[in-house]
């Protein structure tokens, strides 16, 4: 099967609409296809990665813990737009730590999350074959 570069662009907050949850479902299913997968979080999408989420008061499923499984699915390129974070008064410390183990580097634990500028993100988008916007 051909390998393509897939980029999932997450633009919406985790709750308020189902886009974030159903985007993550595509990413997890897509992982079985052994494609080169990258995730980007921009605009309100950065809220999806916030630490210590608790959705019990709105009686909807808190799916944030599922992001921690991405490393096991070889999804370890996660880009968060710096401008979107700053505009919302957030920094990397506000995001949940997401890591993966690099088998080519003695299984060293590495950060999956990279904070990038909007210009850098534009370059990353430019390199992709398939863009999915959620």
């Amino acid at each position: 099967m051909a390998t393509k570069k897939f980029l999932y662009v997450n633009r919406k907050p985790p709750h308020g609409s189902i886009y974030a949850l159903e985007s993550l479902e595509v990413v997890l299913i897509g992982a079985a296809f052994e494609q080169d997968v990258t995730l980007a979080f921009i605009d309100d999408g950065v809220y999806q990665l916030l630490q210590k989420q608790d959705s019990s008061a709105i009686a909807t499923k808190n799916f944030a813990p599922t992001f921690r499984a991405l490393g096991d699915y070889d999804v370890n390129k996660i880009y968060v737009e710096r401008e979107s974070l700053e505009m919302r008064g957030l920094g990397k410390d506000d995001l949940m730590p997401l890591t993966w183990e690099d088998e080519d580097d003695d299984w060293a634990e590495k950060d999956s999350i990279h904070i990038v500028s909007s210009a850098e993100l534009a370059e990353i988008i430019e390199q992709q074959d398939v863009l999915l916007n959620f």
Partner: peptide, 20 residues
């Protein structure tokens, strides 16, 4: 059908066009 059909559609096509 399953979501795999969406990923496969992205692989098979020259362009995947998203309407949302």
């Amino acid at each position: 059908s399953g979501l795999g059909q969406l990923v496969d559609a992205g692989i098979q096509a020259d362009r995947l066009i998203v309407f949302g």
